[in-house]
């Protein structure tokens, strides 16, 4: 369960460049919830994820993940419980290391036997099984350097690395935005499959309104660092792309959308 209370993030506070990125944001997710987040550029979506990950300084508020206050935890410790896939396929993997070495690092996640061989035979078998679920034929290329993979393959690998050991929370920051439409669709359905199978609590940021409606069981629209609109499961099913798009153009009040 994730609970965010009154979260405030201000960049360059007390200067002329002061920018309020998150302005007292409140959010609550139950176990297994799949939340999609939309909002125009600069509405605070990415800042929200960075705040959860401990990558930005918070001026106020608390973030509680499974009864543990992670507001002030260092980022590498938060990473133990939170998996993340970013938009840029280059961010999630080490390019000059092989697929198996990347997987060894992610599966070790903070509890590894320091001097044990990460790519032992036993682990290799485990990696092969995990990779075969991607249907990208990566299971036969364990020793290939990740730099030689395509963006889509790298993103699929990152997704696998983020979810292989079930995280308490999975964060997806426009993770298909840099891919071609067909690959993007594949990665999205793969994401949906993994999230549903493992029942991972997930937050997905997207600019694709259709995806935001299709996937997940909750949807929020962020605007100026606050949750402008919130749709639970039933309300979400009634939404259409047109209704949402109209919200980007005009600052409509809640009542107008459902008319």
């Amino acid at each position: 369960m994730l609970e965010i209370k009154d979260l405030k993030v201000i960049f360059e506070q007390n200067t002329v460049n002061e920018k309020i990125a998150l302005d007292g944001l409140n959010l609550k997710l139950e176990d297994g919830d799949f939340l999609t987040v939309i909002g125009s550029n600069g509405s605070g979506k990415t800042t929200l994820l960075n705040a959860i990950l401990g990558l930005v300084e918070k001026q106020a508020g608390t973030i509680i993940l499974d009864d543990e206050d992670i507001t002030k935890k260092p980022s590498h410790k938060i990473a133990k419980d939170v998996g993340v896939v970013f938009q840029n396929p280059l961010r999630g993997t080490a390019p000059n290391m092989s697929i198996e070495e990347n997987l060894a690092l992610s599966s070790a996640k903070g509890k590894f036997g320091v001097f044990s061989n990460g790519t032992s035979k036993k682990n290799k078998q485990k990696f092969r099984e995990a990779l075969s679920t991607l249907n990208l034929d990566l299971e036969n290329r364990l020793e290939t350097n990740v730099a030689l993979l395509s963006g889509g393959q790298r993103q699929a690998l990152t997704l696998l690395m983020a979810t292989n050991e079930k995280p308490k929370l999975l964060l997806l920051d426009e993770h298909t935005a840099a891919l071609d439409p067909k690959t993007a669709a594949n990665i999205l359905s793969l994401t949906d499959k993994i999230v549903k199978e493992k029942k991972i609590t997930t937050i997905m940021i997207t600019h694709n309104v259709k995806d935001a409606i299709t996937y997940g069981n909750k949807l929020v629209l962020l605007n100026e660092g606050k949750i402008k609109l919130y749709f639970d499961k039933e309300e979400k099913e009634k939404l259409t792309v047109e209704k949402i798009l109209s919200l980007y153009n005009y600052n409509l009040s809640d009542t107008q959308i459902f008319n």
Partner: peptide
């Protein structure tokens, strides 16, 4: 990526 693998 190392940071995201929960390693300092």
């Amino acid at each position: 990526m190392v940071n995201a693998s929960s390693i300092n």
